[in-house]
Design a protein around this nucleic acid. Structure first.
Lengths: 225, 225
DNA sequence: CTGATGGTTCGGCTATGACCGAAGTATGAA
DNA sequence: TTCATACTTCGGTCATAGCCGAACCATCAG
């Protein structure tokens, strides 16, 4: 029974601490160089290079050469999704450490989940959008006609989003909160718009920091009413 | 960076072939003894016992003592869900072997996913139920009033299901097909009803075999119209 | 050309952990 | 009580794979 079930090979790849560090570092959807990933994983360049070769061979990552750098990114949103699911499971089963450092608090407050907003802010945004009748559904989300007008007004080109293969609305289970936040093409577009208008800033890693105007704008746009 | 991200410890548990075999053997939701699991994993009793202790310590499994047997089962549907997600990822990234034995074909046709119907039949059932207006939604499923009457007529006690904590309808991404099938409390109840009226028989492992009357009943109940 | 930086490959060290034989603990049957 | 079954624990072997130092390619700047 050496052939084992298909899941073992993939899971084993995710099971090494260094590789897991690399993958979580990539969960914000950006592409990083080998050196950056080595730093993030806490190993030397050679070691990281070996790990990356394996992850690439398994098609979990895609590589892109640019000058003398090689950039790696997750090969798709599904990889990020599996990682978040594993985090949820790890938390539920109590494997989580108590470490409640300041970085941890920041992560819980607002962070990037592949390419959209997650954490308390992300959960709040979806909840309020639902209460305002912009989005309907629970597990399966859909834009209402009112929501279409709202987000078009917010500066998002919905017809373009709907042309793509990617689902517009996608409910993504939040790792720290136990509720859902908004992913999909729309989730990505909203975050990108928020960054454009300087509501939010990318810090190191996956942490997102809201500016003063950002908080104000957020509260005004996604009001509780 | 030895502490590593939380996912590594869990993923490492799933990454061993023997343990992965054990977990997939439990994916049909039943509880199995140590010997049975050792057999399924292709290792000796002692080795299996060690693996089970680890999986139990990580709360992925729950143990239950009965006489001189110890029964293990998955600690919840979320574990099965993560396993299915990993299978999907393994398939997408091409880690899957070509092995297309007869057992594989049977698995694709109809199988148990934790406690509900999956495979071609499972996907077909949901699709037809949606077309008939019994269930609505795509990612997030909900019973229509027509659906309530229909399933009550089918012999399912919906008020009882709705009392439980478990969601009644749950869209579960199918591993072999690339579509959704119906999970949740309702999905479990339907499968159990089908077994009661001998539409379907549990074979070894996760394979489900439809009887002649089963196919007939299935087609009559979930018609294409 | 030379030198510097980013990345890969190779070789050897080491630790982890999977595995099984054998001995030890429960539970049930005769 | 005696034996058998189901399982756990212990001890020792062995293979795998992660890790780094060192040497080797590739790209860019002078």
């Amino acid at each position: 029974m050496k052939e084992g079930p298909v899941i073992a090979s993939v899971a084993a790849l995710l099971g090494d601490p260094a590789r897991a560090n690399i993958l979580t570092a990539l969960m914000d959807g950006r592409a990083l160089t080998v050196s950056e990933l080595a730093e993030a994983a806490g190993v030397t360049l050679q070691t990281a290079s070996g790990h990356l070769a394996k992850l690439d061979a398994a098609n979990l990552l895609t590589a892109e050469k640019q000058g003398r750098h090689r950039y790696f990114r997750l090969s798709g949103p599904d990889v990020a999704q599996v990682l978040e699911a594993l985090m949820g499971l790890a938390q539920r089963t109590g494997a989580t450490r108590v470490r409640t450092g300041p970085k941890d608090a920041a992560l819980r407050s607002a962070r990037i989940c592949y390419d959209h907003l997650a954490g308390e802010r992300g959960v709040a945004m979806l909840k309020r959008a639902q209460r305002q009748g912009l989005i309907e559904g629970e597990q399966d989300l859909a834009l209402t006609t009112r929501g279409r007008a709202f987000f078009a007004d917010f500066g998002i080109d919905l017809t373009r989003l709907e042309k793509g293969r990617r689902p517009v609305c996608r409910a993504c289970l939040d790792w720290s909160e136990r509720h859902r936040h908004l992913g999909g093409a729309l989730g990505a577009a909203i975050l990108s718009a928020m960054i454009d208008r300087k509501w939010v800033r990318r810090d190191s890693g996956r942490v997102l920091t809201f500016t003063c105007e950002g908080v104000e704008g957020f509260e005004a746009t996604f009001s509780l009413a």
